[in-house]
């Protein structure tokens, strides 16, 4: 799952750092991800994992790191 998240970040995150080697707890916004890019990342994750983020999870904190995104995906896939 983490590798797929990294690939999505590489394609859509517009990061100034390499998503393949970014520490899992690194702040993605500090790494250059804009709010617009975070929307693209969210939509790509929804498509990849066949999930939908509820409005309650549309928070900056949910997308602030690879680890945070993975936790959110795990939560949503477990709920399915």
């Amino acid at each position: 799952m983490t590798e797929r998240i990294r690939n999505i970040l590489k394609e859509h995150g517009r990061l100034s750092k390499d998503a393949a080697t970014l520490p899992e707890d690194a702040d993605l916004y500090q790494a250059g991800m804009t709010s617009h890019a975070s929307v693209n990342v969210m939509l790509a994750i929804e498509g990849t994992f066949n999930i939908e983020f509820p409005d309650s999870m549309l928070k900056r904190s949910v997308f602030e790191s690879i680890a945070a995104i993975r936790a959110a995906v795990e939560q949503l896939t477990a709920g399915g």
């Binding site: 617009h36 929307v39 693209n40 969210m42 939509l43 790509a44 929804e46 549309l58």
Partner: peptide, 22 residues
């Protein structure tokens, strides 16, 4: 400030899923 071509890319890539979220 928002880059218009980036928005166009998002619309092309995600379509209504993009516009309806925002």
């Amino acid at each position: 400030l928002v880059q218009i071509s980036q928005v166009a890319n998002s619309i092309d890539r995600f379509g209504e899923a993009f516009t309806r979220r925002l």
